[in-house]
Design a protein around this nucleic acid. Sequence first.
DNA 1: GCCAGGCATCGACGAATGTCAATGAATGGT
DNA 2: ACCATTCATTGACATTCGTCGATGCCTGGC
Lengths: 92, 92
Amino acid sequence: MAADDAAALAATFKAMGDPTRLRLLSMVAAAEGGEACVCDLNESLALSQGTVSHHLGLLVNAGLLTRTKRGVWSYYALVPGALPALARTLTV
Amino acid sequence: MAADDAAALAATFKAMGDPTRLRLLSMVAAAEGGEACVCDLNESLALSQGTVSHHLGLLVNAGLLTRTKRGVWSYYALVPGALPALARTLTV
DNA sequence: GCCAGGCATCGACGAATGTCAATGAATGGT
DNA sequence: ACCATTCATTGACATTCGTCGATGCCTGGC
């Protein structure tokens, strides 16, 4: 594996290497309509609102979530195909 | 996803969230016989021997590699089924 | 126009991480 | 018996990370 590919792939895995972010991904995936707002996610996590927003920002930056702002609320959803593509890199 | 499951899964992903460790996994997987010794791995990585050994120890601790000592050499090999099991967690 | 609510951002702090040089432990050859 | 080789471990250091509190920015309603 080339150094560049390793760095890019490692960035994605690093984004998933945190329990809070894995739970956020799981909650977004399980949400009705495939999207959830921070107000819902924040209640279930015993973390400050700023911290949850920070983690969600990292997941968006890693290409795993999308952020859609409607009115006052921000809705997060899975990037279609991102997780399957990641799974494919593990089953060469 | 429960907090405990998230913590366990995150530990595995965190172990893969480093370019050096991804390259080590790749090199071990591509090695003939499915195993490689530190002396081989060390040459291709422009890192000190101690650092490579440290990363390999982390991968063993994460349940991704096994370590077999034969004579003076330590041979590392993939844990059978570990990566496919990880891939399965991504394609629920 | 003002105010309340939902989020993102900033500054700060302790904890964890990646790296190296140096040392230690074990093995094989001379 | 001695030495060279292979690898793990230790101590140290700079950097990054996760978290919080506080603040700032929009949006929608009064």
